[in-house]
Structure formats: structure tokens, C-alpha cells
Nucleic acid binder design. Structure first.
Length: 434
RNA sequence: UCCACAGUAGCUCAAUGGUAGAGCAUCCGGCUGUUAACCGGAGGGUUGUAGGUUCGAGUCCUACCUGUGGAGCCA
């Protein structure tokens, strides 16, 4: 087979009538006696190779019997346009070469349970639904980077090993760090992004984040990816404007570039098409009014639960921005509203269809004394935050930013019922493998 | 940590307290256009574990194990 034009399935359209070689794995096979069909999967698509007895050598024809699901093999043949083929093209097989026979591949083209599939995540990734999700994820990540890169943001990566909790509330993963005591896996790059914003004006960080909370829901992973923009000389309104332009760009880009994948996932994209600015903006107080009108007993000062978020978001045809939360339920670094010190200049974006909070952010406290008081009030170790306080000592300015959870966003765009399918190898409270 | 639900063939699931079954997968046979192909046949079980009730337990009771997703926490 040497010397053949080796091609990928996604580019078959450019090779109609030519003889090519395809390399991949057996997705499925069918036979009708003297005519045999081999479905080859090469990572870019699936194509059916057809061979009839007498049309190929007996040797090649017999290799059909040896091939099992997910065996690695190559097909040589002529590309033909065929309306019967799901991908539009077929291969008239002239030769078959076997690389490796797979025995008893566990994932059949039938239904399986979540535990069975999760235990075989390394193989599950070969299935077409997972291909669609991973391609959406990949494109979304690129869209996120493009959005900020095109606007002059500088990528400032934050450290993953940190000396203390950023927000001081959630449980962190802990590890020994030489002679310096304990280190923790980061729960947010935000504090470092703030330093970056004071250095470069507008920055973003985009990396993995770790939370050791024993959360066991469809919206939680212990390891997830978060993109966090941070902008100097930006207030809460500027922050909301950035958030809505950002969401519009990434959602519309994925809709435009990954329509085929969303079709595979049978995603109804009607509501996603609506993700354009302006997004509705309501205050925490207005959100409570919505809940009370819907008969929910809700006390001012509490945070919204998952069902509360769903009820609020159901009132709108696109993501809704909720701002000015009670300060007591928000992080120490959020600036208070000068008009009402009981509320923080915080911002959450709730996705439609029950996907919940995909963005959380705020205008940051830029006053040194206020921040010092807040650190004391929250019983945080001031020494660990001295460098952060320096940002207020040397040219402090109003600044804002937010974090967007990548997996929740992928889950929302793809219409999945659990974030565990949005990342190649999910990390959850009771799952560390594969 | 708390609450709820589940655990039967390799997989997905059935089975009034009374002989453990089906579809798929696997193996054998058939079929020249199949699309999760179809048709015929075969093999495949310590019903999560340990006790208990009963003439008799997959089924009822207790404890434990494992899983699932909800609360809390959050993106």
C-alpha cells in the first residue's frame, strides 16, 4: 500500500474518483453474504467501505471475518459519491490491511449505564457523541481565546499551587510543599489576574481550578476549567457589558462553526440563537420578587439554590445577569455598592434551561482600609494577602472581572444533562480514574 | 455530612413470596446494498455482601458495600 495517497475521512470530498488509503478503527461491520460493509472510523468521521466477492482479492475479502469492533486497519479504495451514505461518500474497497485485532471491545453500539461508561472513559471518547462534545469544547476554548486576544487582553496565567485560599470559604486540596509548609491547589486565578490587570490594563487567565467540596450534582466537578478576565478602570456596568459581549461571541461562534456536532447531539438551538446583547439585567432584589411571585418563600440575605436559579432564568429567553447581591454571602474582595453598603457589586449570569450559574464576578474592592477590615472580619491571614494589598497601596483603581466555568458552558451549549461529559477525563468526588 | 433511589447474564433490562427470562454482544449457519441490518441456532447466572423471617426469598426485614442525583458549597 506504500505510495498511496493517505487521506482523512473529512476530506474525502476532495478525492472523488481517486484511489486513496484510509487508516482507522472498525466502528461496525455488516454483511449480506457476498457483499460486505466495513465502517471505518478515523477520528475525523466515519465512512463505509464496500466490497463484493469477486470485486477484490479473496484474501482481502476474507479479512472481513477477522475484523472485530475497534480493530485497527487500513482500507485502500476508490472514493465514490453516494446519496445512500450518511456522510455522502463511500469507498469501493480494493485492499484491506490489518494493524491490530481488538478482542471483546466492551462498548457496543447499544445503550450503556453511566458507571459502565465512566469506568471506560478512555474508550468512551471514541464514540460519536463524545466526539461531538469534545469538538464543541475545543471550538469554545478557541473562541474564548480569540475573543480576548482580539481585544488586546494579555494572557497572564495564574499559579496552580498557592499558599492560601483565595476566597477563604471553600475546601481546598492540600499538599506538602518542601520546607514551606502546606500548599493548596488553586480555586481561582482571580487575585493574580488583578495583579495582572494593574500591570497590563486588561488581562485574562484560563486554567484548571480545584475545589475539594463534596458536591455531588450534575453541575459539579472537583477539577474544572475557568476563564477569568480582569480589567482596570472598569466598574460593574463595564463588567456586565464585557460579559454579554463575551457570551454572544462565544455562543454564536460555536453555533456557526459546530452546527454539525450540535445536530449529532440533537440540540435544539432555538434559545442559543437568542444569546445576543443586551442580556437582561436584574438586581438580586428583583430576582427575589420573581421568586415570590412564583410562590417561593425566600428570605433576603440567602443565596439562590439550583431550583431558584431555574425559576428566575425561565422568565427570560436568554441568559440573565443578576447583580448587587447581599454582601454577607459574597467574597471579601467584592466592592460594596456606595448607594447601599448592604449589597456587593457582584454579578452572576444564569444560563437558561436549568443550566444555572455559568458566570460569577464583581467589581473589586479598591480601597485599602475597606479591604483590610474585610480580611479581619473574615478571619483571613493578613500576611498571606500582603502582596494583594500592595495592589491597593500602589496606584489603586476601580477594576472588575468575572469567571466563566468552561464545563458548565459546554454542557449548556451541548444540552447535556451532566458536566462529566464535557471534559475528557472528569474528576469527581468518587472518581479519580481513568 | 444529610436525604432519596438503585444493584439480576459481558451490556440494557424483565420476573403476584412458588421452575431466573428477553433484546443486544459473543460463537456457528444463511443472505449481492446493509445503515444500532436482517433470519435461524448455541453457549452464557454464587440475583452486590452478610445475616434474618418463611415449607419456600431475586422479591419481605436488618446491617454493610457500591453506584446515582439532590441538599449544602459553588463555575
Amino acid at each position: 500500500m506504500e505510495g498511496m495517497g493517505r487521506v482523512y475521512i473529512e476530506e474525502l470530498g476532495k478525492h472523488v474518483g481517486e484511489e486513496v488509503e484510509l487508516r482507522g478503527w472498525l466502528y461496525n461491520k455488516r454483511s449480506s453474504g457476498k457483499i460486505r460493509f466495513l465502517l471505518l472510523r478515523d477520528g475525523t468521521g466515519i465512512v463505509q467501505g464496500v466490497m463484493a466477492k469477486g470485486g477484490v482479492s479473496d484474501e482481502a475479502f476474507a479479512k472481513f471475518d477477522e475484523l472485530t469492533q475497534e480493530s485497527a486497519f487500513a482500507l485502500k479504495g476508490k472514493v465514490r459519491k453516494d446519496d445512500r451514505a450518511p456522510g455522502g461518500f463511500e469507498l469501493e474497497v480494493t485492499d484491506v490491511r490489518i494493524y491490530a485485532i481488538a478482542t471483546d471491545y466492551p462498548i457496543t453500539p447499544k445503550e450503556h449505564g453511566v458507571e459502565f461508561l465512566a469506568d471506560r472513559r478512555h474508550l468512551w471518547l471514541r464514540s460519536s457523541r463524545q466526539h461531538a462534545v469534545m469538538r464543541v469544547r475545543h471550538r469554545l476554548i478557541k473562541a474564548i481565546r480569540d475573543f480576548y486576544d482580539n481585544r488586546g487582553f494579555v494572557l497572564i496565567d495564574s499559579p496552580i499551587l498557592t499558599p492560601a485560599a483565595c476566597e477563604g470559604t471553600t475546601t481546598l486540596f492540600e499538599t506538602d510543599y518542601f520546607d514551606l509548609g502546606k500548599a493548596y491547589l488553586t480555586q481561582s486565578g482571580q487575585l493574580y489576574a488583578e495583579a495582572g490587570a494593574m500591570a497590563f490594563g486588561k488581562v485574562y487567565c484560563f486554567g484548571p481550578t480545584f475545589r475539594a467540596e463534596k458536591s455531588k450534582t450534575r453541575r459539579h466537578l472537583t477539577e474544572f476549567w475557568m476563564v477569568e478576565p480582569e480589567v482596570a478602570f472598569a466598574d460593574l456596568n463595564d463588567n456586565m457589558e464585557l460579559a454579554e459581549e463575551f457570551l454572544e461571541y462565544i455562543v454564536q461562534t460555536v453555533l456557526r462553526e459546530r452546527g454539525e456536532e450540535l445536530k449529532v447531539l440533537e440540540r435544539n438551538t432555538t434559545l442559543l440563537q437568542n444569546v445576543k446583547k443586551p442580556l437582561p439585567r436584574i438586581s438580586y432584589d428583583e430576582a427575589i420578587e420573581i421568586l415570590r411571585k412564583k410562590g417561593v418563600q425566600f428570605e433576603w440575605g440567602n443565596d439562590f439554590g439550583g431550583t431558584d436559579e431555574t425559576i428566575i432564568s425561565e422568565q427570560f429567553d436568554r441568559p440573565v445577569m443578576v447583580h448587587r447581591y447581599p454582601a454577607q454571602i459574597k467574597a471579601f474582595y467584592m466592592k460594596r455598592d456606595p448607594q447601599n453598603p448592604n449589597v456587593a457589586l457582584a454579578l452572576d449570569v444564569l444560563a437558561p434551561e436549568g443550566y444555572g450559574e455559568i458566570i460569577g464576578g464583581s467589581q473589586r474592592e479598591d480601597n485599602l482600609d475597606a479591604l483590610l477590615g474585610r480580611i479581619k472580619q473574615h478571619n483571613l491571614p493578613q500576611e498571606a494577602f500582603e502582596w494583594y494589598l500592595d495592589l491597593r497601596r500602589y496606584g489603586t483603581v476601580p477594576h472588575s472581572g468575572f469567571g466563566l466555568g468552561l464545563e458548565r458552558t459546554v454542557g449548556w451549549i451541548c444540552g447535556l444533562d451532566h458536566v462529566r461529559e464535557t471534559v475528557p477525563f472528569p474528576r469527581m468526588i468518587y472518581r479519580l480514574t481513568p
